[in-house]
């Protein structure tokens, strides 16, 4: 039984069946990648996990509890943090202030909303935020206006903000989309480091095969709203159905 169990999830937008009958099990402390061509339903699936969309059928269980019908902030409090395709950070605030916000709203065992209570312990919050920025190698940028940073730095900050909450499951939606090669490699290194150093489960949606094959423990291939196959990266690379449906030449290159 995995930490995240998706059973028979279906979602229809008007005449379009975005998700057919998706079954997915993400094992604890693993990196699970979901790949598939454009329009395969990857983002729809992710939105169903975080409460942005409610599936028409099926169930989504996180750690034995259903996430369906909960708002995004409640699902986050259960221990699921999400990194967006375009980095969602507080652009008007400095890097340090960005990091302080998830530190106020940190999960410890059960989630406590202590934004107002924390007035008395602001120093403590600052220390936590600085420690996290140091982990992310961003301490020297802490006074920078976060909107003025590069895409890669914004992504790094966003991942750091998610980690500051100590989530049990980190969802990444195309974390290297629109990034330069150097930034992509930095992001891969960062994610590898997170995987090694923390007790965390990562589910990742990605187009870039290089990223997927260097990180994932298991891969699910999604096509036209249904899972085609699920297996380890090595097996996926050689799988004839997958090659035909999606990978083509890019797998050979990777």
């Amino acid at each position: 039984m995995g930490i995240l169990e998706v059973k028979n999830v279906g979602k229809r937008f008007g005449g379009l069946q975005a998700l057919g009958d998706v079954n997915l099990s993400v094992a604890e402390n693993s990196v699970h990648a979901i790949i598939g061509p454009n329009g395969a339903g990857k983002s729809t699936l992710l939105n169903c996990l975080v409460g942005k969309l409610i599936p028409d059928t099926g169930s989504v269980m996180f750690d034995g509890q259903s996430v369906l019908g909960r708002t995004p902030y409640e699902i986050n409090q259960m221990g699921i943090s999400r990194v967006f395709q375009t980095p969602e950070i507080f652009g008007d605030l400095t890097v340090m202030e960005n990091m302080m916000i998830p530190c106020f709203a940190r999960r410890d065992g059960s989630f406590k909303l202590n934004g107002i209570k924390a007035v008395t312990s602001e120093g403590e919050i600052r220390d936590k935020a600085e420690a996290m920025l140091k982990d992310m190698n961003m301490l020297e940028k802490r006074h920078m206006h976060s909107a003025s940073m590069s895409r890669g730095d914004k992504r790094r900050l966003e991942i750091g903000m998610c980690l500051a909450q100590e989530p049990r499951l980190l969802l990444l939606d195309e974390p290297t989309a629109g990034m330069a090669r150097a930034d992509t490699n930095n992001t891969i290194d960062l994610l590898k480091q997170i995987k090694e150093e923390r007790d965390i489960t990562i589910a990742i949606i990605e187009h870039d095969m290089h990223v997927v094959f260097s990180l994932a423990d298991r891969i699910t291939v999604l096509a036209q709203g249904t899972p085609l196959v699920e297996d380890t990266p090595d097996k996926i690379k050689g799988h004839p159905k997958v090659r035909e449906a999606y990978l083509g030449e890019s797998a050979a290159a990777a």
């Binding site: 902030y73 507080f90 605030l93 916000i101 909303l113 934004g115 903000m161």
Partner: peptide, 28 residues
């Protein structure tokens, strides 16, 4: 200058991120 003020500025800056940081913006 308070953390409460920081939270209010965060509301102005990006409500999506606040929601996905486990915060309900309404009380603020």
């Amino acid at each position: 200058r308070s953390p409460f003020g920081l939270m209010l500025r965060a509301v102005k800056s990006n409500q999506t991120r606040l929601n996905y940081t486990g915060l309900n913006t309404r009380p603020y």
